Amino acid sequence: MTEQSPVLSKVTRQACDYASVKVIDALIRRSGYGNRAIDRLCDGTITYGRIRDIRNGLKAPVRLPEFLLICEVCNAGPIQTLRDIITEARRMELEQQTATKKPTGERLVVDEQARVAETLNKLRRGDLDFAAHEDEHKYDGDEDDPT
């Protein structure tokens, strides 16, 4: 789960970066402080704009000194918060892996021709069968012959 940041092409984000955004945002919300209050409590060490960027996952991921200061201001243990981030990152990676796995024999089909070709291949292999076009037990409304 590595991806380029839309803001800075030099920053490559990983699952732990996304998890830290989620956990730190929840930590700040639980503390009851807003971005401005965190700015004031940090004596401007972490500015309002930087706190906003951290919480929204913009620009660079959170740095260790910022992480420790946010934990201190929010009265949260940095070790437990780091464990929460690691747990969330593992969950996100597992979710990403299971989302990209496809059942054996199935492929993602993008265009119409590829879909038709895949259906014909399944039919030839015997993985697919047509339903009956006629049903001897189905009547068309008149009493003489079934459809």
Rank of each mutant, 00 (worst) to 15 (best):
D144L: 11
A26S: 11
R125K: 11
D129G: 09
G105K: 01
R115V: 04
L108Y: 06
K59N: 09
R83I: 06
K59C: 06
L8H: 05
V7Y: 12
P146N: 12
I79E: 12
T81W: 01
V116L: 10
K22N: 07
T47N: 08
E112K: 10
Y48F: 14
A131L: 13
G49H: 05
D145M: 12
C42T: 15
E134S: 14
K101C: 06
S20Q: 02
S20N: 01
R29Y: 11
A114Q: 15
D135H: 08
A117M: 13
R90D: 02
M1T: 04
N56W: 02
Y33P: 03
A15Q: 01
R13Q: 02
R107F: 08
A19K: 00
L41I: 05
R124F: 09
G44V: 04
V21Q: 05
E134Q: 15
Y18I: 02
V109F: 09
A117F: 07
R29N: 08
E95N: 07
L41H: 15
A26K: 06
P6H: 03
Q4D: 08
Q97R: 05
I51D: 00
I86N: 02
A76Q: 14
G44H: 03
P146E: 12
G77T: 03
Y18R: 02
L41W: 04
S9N: 14
G105M: 04
D127V: 08
D111L: 04
C74S: 07
V7P: 04
L128H: 03
L82D: 03
G126R: 00
Y18E: 02
V62P: 00
R107L: 13
V73A: 01
V7F: 13
Q97E: 10
T147C: 11
A117R: 14
G49F: 07
R52G: 13
D129T: 13
N56D: 07
A76F: 10
L41E: 14
